[in-house]
Every structure is written in C-alpha cells, then in structure tokens.
Simulated assay, not measured.
Amino acid sequence: MDFDKDKFKNVLYFIIYKCGFRNTVGRTVIHKLLYFSDFNYYKEFNQSITNESYIKKERGPMPIHFEMAIENWLRKIR
C-alpha cells in the first residue's frame, strides 16, 4: 500500500489536538505517539493506519513525512 497523506495528517492533528500545547510534549513525543498508533493498529488489524515508514533515530522512530505535515499544519493556523 502507498502512504496515505490525508490519514497521516489527520492522525497527527488528532494527536496534537489531544496533547494540547503542553511543555512536556515535543516533537520526539509526537514521533513516538505516531509510531505507536500505527504499530498498535497494525497489531490489532494487520494493516497500518497511514502506511507511513519510520526511520531509526537516537531517541526513537521518526516518521518520514512528519516535517511536510507539520509545515502544512503551521500554514493553516497562521
């Protein structure tokens, strides 16, 4: 399956909405929440929510399309 840009953005925006603007929630936490959302959904239903690919980083997995989605979100709220 191909990467689903709209679903990825919706999951990202939902996580941001639920976390609010807390001092303890930064990019690394959001990366992990996206990863575990996909991972747990895959574990339950044998398919990914977004079909996103993740790269290994020092502090945990990072979604490849994260920066693109954040830039779109920032344009919307400005």
Rank of each mutant, 00 (worst) to 15 (best):
D2I: 10
D2C: 07
F3N: 03
F3M: 05
D4H: 03
D4G: 10
K5S: 12
K5R: 09
D6M: 11
D6K: 15
D6G: 07
D6H: 06
K7F: 00
K7P: 04
K7A: 06
K7G: 04
K7Q: 05
F8Q: 00
F8P: 00
F8R: 00
K9G: 04
K9W: 00
K9R: 11
N10C: 00
N10W: 01
N10F: 04
N10I: 03
V11Q: 01
V11N: 00
V11P: 01
L12W: 02
Y13L: 08
F14P: 00
F14I: 05
I16C: 03
Y17F: 12
Y17Q: 08
Y17K: 14
Y17L: 07
K18T: 06
K18Q: 11
K18H: 10
C19R: 10
C19D: 05
G20Q: 08
R22V: 00
N23K: 13
T24V: 03
V25S: 07
V25M: 08
G26R: 10
G26C: 02
G26W: 02
T28E: 14
V29Q: 12
H31M: 03
K32V: 02
K32Q: 04
K32N: 05
K32T: 02
K32P: 02
L33K: 14
L33G: 04
L33P: 09
L33M: 15
L34N: 00
L34W: 03
F36C: 04
F36Y: 15
S37R: 11
S37A: 15
S37T: 15
S37C: 12
S37M: 11
D38F: 01
F39C: 07
N40G: 03
Y41M: 05
Y42G: 06
Y42F: 09
K43L: 14
K43R: 13
K43C: 13
E44N: 09
E44C: 04
E44D: 12
F45I: 03
F45C: 14
F45P: 08
N46D: 14
N46V: 01
N46H: 06
Q47G: 08
Q47F: 06
N51A: 10
N51F: 14
E52M: 09
E52P: 07
E52D: 01
S53V: 13
S53G: 10
Y54T: 09
I55K: 15
I55Y: 11
I55N: 11
K56D: 12
K57V: 08
K57D: 11
E58S: 14
E58C: 04
E58K: 14
R59W: 07
R59P: 00
G60T: 08
P61S: 02
M62L: 14
P63E: 02
P63D: 01
P63K: 10
I64K: 15
F66H: 08
E67T: 15
E67N: 10
M68D: 14
A69M: 09
A69Y: 02
I70G: 07
E71N: 14
E71W: 08
E71G: 01
W73Y: 12
W73M: 08
W73V: 01
L74H: 06
L74G: 03
R75K: 14
R75E: 15
K76I: 04
K76G: 02
I77L: 13
